[in-house]
Design a protein around this nucleic acid. Structure first.
Lengths: 221, 221
DNA sequence: ATCGAACGTGAACAGTGTCAACATAGACCC
DNA sequence: GGGTCTATGTTGACACTGTTCACGTTCGAT
């Protein structure tokens, strides 16, 4: 009855296949369209089989979120590194910081539905394990991405681009505007094309950095 | 078979009753828990009756969003006016602006689920009318709230607190960080209690205003 | 080779969105 | 008043969903 032929009775890698299918599904038709049954169908497995790997449909969504966070971390890291490579010292740190922010928003816009899942209400719905099953960390999901953020912010201070006193604030002052821009774009309040993205980012960047006390001369064009 | 007795066969105000029930439902158990059937049940009416007033379950959610936007507009307006009343000129304009932002975030935190609906993916799902049935304006939903925002931003310029050149930027520079803070709080990335709210708001406020070129002396304590 | 555990299947339950056919009750005209 | 029209509700059905339970199948260790 499986919709996709499968040579072996056992799938072999069902868990990952399900996550992948779910990511696809969510990407195609949005979070609402996602259904555990449809994901199972795509993988070619009966719906109940999924319950050997996920206690809930929410557990599967959490896995989708986790996948998204790790991709996001990679993306941010890569673009930040690239930006820093072209410059030195404080200027490099500022460039990396800026690139990271841009990467964050770009990721959201290019993976709208998955981004929504990542920050959806599912992650902390029940007492159930927050992410992959580790119960210790409520927000373990975004840990990798958050670690990247912290690293780049620290650079900002150690390179001298930012006074140490501002370090405590910068996390929020950096994150909130970028997150807000991202959400406004994926939720349709702001057009979600790449040009608008760049323009909006540019508008936000300078006042934020200046407000935090970064020397305007360090801010790339 | 109605779960709530109803003296008359016709309800009389079913549309509004449904919206109210939906707002309640969403507030109690989140957007996911919402179901057209449950809303109908609460009102004491058969599920199909709702289809005389809403083409979709999404249409009902859009009505919930609309309700939220008008409440938000009232709230922002009220708190801004109150804050301005105590001061004069540029200082008053800045205070009103600040109060409006605080009201925005506070509304989100105190009406988490409804706020999520307001900015959810439902509003612009289909070609269907965006909100109450008017098809002209894609984002007619937030018009009242947006008008309030514009009014207060204009004050900022006319009162001399902000250079006219910054007017074009300020909309985004004000909205994105507040929206981001709101979402991070309701989505669990930042604790959603009132003290954290005030503290976070305070951290964001000053760099933003300074970055835009507002005289620090005008910023309230 | 056997046996337990891990993995997958089928059939079933309650709940959902939605629709078409039918019932009721106001409104409006004579 | 009586008679018709139309807005409004109701019943019953369909296809779909999440989830569970009893049951097959296969893998790996002994």
């Amino acid at each position: 009855m499986a919709t996709i032929e499968r040579p072996t009775y056992h799938h072999g890698d069902l868990r990952n296949a399900l996550v992948l299918a779910a990511v696809e599904l969510v990407g195609e038709s949005g979070v609402d369209a996602f259904s555990l049954r449809e994901a199972s169908r795509r993988v070619g497995v009966s719906p109940s089989a999924s319950y050997r790997h996920f206690r809930d449909r929410f557990a599967l969504l959490r896995a989708v979120a986790e996948d998204g966070f790790s991709r996001l971390a990679e993306q941010m890291e890569a673009e930040a590194d690239e930006a820093r490579a072209e410059r030195r010292g404080a200027e490099g740190a500022v460039a990396a910081f800026s690139a990271m922010g841009r990467a964050y928003v770009r990721f959201a816009v290019h993976h709208q539905a998955q981004f929504r899942v990542m920050f959806g209400p599912w992650a902390r719905n029940e007492l159930a394990g927050p992410c992959a099953g580790k119960q210790q960390e409520q927000d373990a999901c975004g840990m990798a991405a958050h670690a990247t953020l912290v690293r780049i912010l620290d650079d900002l201070v150690t390179s001298g681009a930012l006074e140490a006193a501002a370090r405590a604030q910068i996390e929020l002052v950096a994150w909130a505007p970028m997150h807000g821009l991202a959400r406004l774009m994926i939720d349709g309040q702001i057009p979600a094309d790449d040009e608008t993205l760049e323009a909006s980012f540019a508008v936000l960047e300078r006042p934020l950095l200046i407000g935090l006390g970064v020397d305007p001369a360090l801010i790339g064009r």
